[in-house]
Design a protein around this nucleic acid. Structure first.
Lengths: 283, 283
DNA sequence: ACACCAAATGTAGTAAAATTACAACTTTGC
DNA sequence: GCAAAGTTGTAATTTTACTACATTTGGTGT
């Protein structure tokens, strides 16, 4: 795909002069795309047809087509592909790979979100008497984050890490309460039990989990996120980010539903934090 | 920057014929980059110089240069632009906007990360006797997440929400301990104080924060993330995601440094979770 | 309504760029 | 060391883009 990578890989197939062209291009690709075939030939100290042959060897139609491909490779943000980390990767490689595959996963997640469910859940949340966020393991920090967000809305919001506290909290639920349960797999036993407890106490249960899972089956509403997880790392990574982004979506929907006046309230909450901070020069 | 957006925006400045060209290009940009000025002129039903003038109006050197810009816009599809949520947005719009601007922010964050610092911090973490993760407010959940990740590595790892516990923990630090402090603004007073306490007890302090902030100045190493935050919402959103992704990067670097054998250990940790879960059909 | 001016568009010629065909030169194997 | 295959360069050809100028269009003031 990426023509720059292709140049480095095909290196063996190049002839001596073609390699000269490759070097010049790799050394300064940004200049290459703005040069004519003549100037590039001069820079590489070869003839114009050689440059042309070089382009064709890379399966492009000719020099202008090659420049197009090169320009696309140089455009920042190259396609976000889910690239797995390799054992031999250096810091530069794995950093970029992680960022890129996170972005790729978000794109997949975005497409799997059902906006109708989002809308109804936002409805529920705005009307809720009490909102609870529960998750375990890696999803606990997502629930924790949701607490932080919804707490600012001046809504009774609950979050516990302890499963006994979670159970007790759900026991005391009543009509009008919303319980949001977060789990990537949707197979965590105690979370499924909590869903059952909450529902039998007339709470509405929303699951941010994988569709068709045991947990999903116990929920009134399911916000399913299909996120490809790199299982080689044995750690939840992309799923968490997708869950958090979904929390952001819900929080945003919430504030929009509440209107402008409510937004000012948020600003006040933020302003009270000022005392705990060093002022920014110029504030 | 993005020439496609530029075309849509500049629409008013175009003349009648130029608008015809714009339409044809917007309708099928992929074809446009592979066409000559003559064929594009014929498609738009205008003359060749008109196409050329159209290109110049968009501040390009001429038609070939314009094609280059267009190709870059089409690459990757740099479709991920930071789009602010509008009050009138429906669920579909704000959901997509949040996902897209999160992705855009990750791209910005990726470019702002200094991989050399990443490498040194990974070094530190692999050699650390004890690792602490502290953050407050929105960053608390990031620290919480880091705990969950590094806990799997069978390394002494510490995390507290309570600032007094954080302080006491740092008081007991010694040489070889690493304290990771997370804060978007880097202006939270108590976190800055914690950095000072930790350093005066010979711990190495790593900041995941904004470069040049009061917190950054107190750290031994700073992993600075420059993330544009949509301040209209009065909530930290993108910054959190970028921080989490950076934690993933560090965790990944950690496992890579520890080698293959260590990876198997991670698998064992994951396998012990199985008892708490409903089996997946086919496991 | 007409003349006039400015902006917009097109025509035709020109310059530049890329490609092709072919010749000269290397390299490789026997 | 010579032939054959492969590589590179020169020069001609073709394609492409650009410029200068002519024509048309649309609008403004008398």
């Amino acid at each position: 795909m990426n023509i720059l990578e292709k140049i480095t890989q095909n290196n063996a197939a190049f002839s001596k002069s073609e390699r000269k062209v490759a070097e010049v291009i790799l050394a300064n690709p940004q200049t290459a795309i703005h040069s004519s075939i003549a100037t590039l030939a001069k820079m590489s100290d070869v003839s114009e047809p050689t440059v042309n042959r070089f382009c064709r060897r890379l399966d492009t139609k000719g020099f202008p087509d090659f420049k197009l491909h090169l320009a696309q490779s140089l455009a920042n943000g190259t396609p976000y592909v889910n690239r797995h980390v390799d054992e031999l990767d250096g810091p530069e490689e794995y950093t970029n790979k992680i960022f890129e595959s996170t972005m790729a996963s978000l794109e997949v997640a975005r497409q799997s979100v059902d906006v109708n469910v989002v809308n109804r859940v936002v409805d529920l949340l705005t009307q809720a008497q009490k909102i609870s966020f529960f998750g375990l393991g890696a999803s606990a920090s997502v629930a924790h984050d949701a607490l932080n967000k919804f707490f600012r809305f001046n809504v009774p919001v609950v979050y516990f890490e302890d499963i006994l506290m979670q159970r007790m909290s759900c026991m005391n639920c009543s009509d009008g309460d919303v319980v949001v349960l977060i789990s990537h797999t949707g197979r965590t036993k105690s979370l499924v039990e909590i869903a059952q407890i909450a529902r039998s106490n007339d709470a509405t249960v929303v699951g941010i989990t994988s569709g068709g899972s045991p947990l999903a089956n116990e929920c009134n509403y399911v916000l399913s996120l299909e996120v490809p997880e790199d299982t080689d790392m044995y750690m939840p990574m992309a799923s968490r980010i997708a869950q958090l982004t979904l929390i952001d979506v819900l929080a945003t929907g919430f504030t929009l539903r509440r209107g402008n006046k409510f937004r000012e309230n948020l600003k006040r909450v933020k302003d009270t934090l000022r005392g705990s901070r060093y002022e920014k020069r110029g504030d």
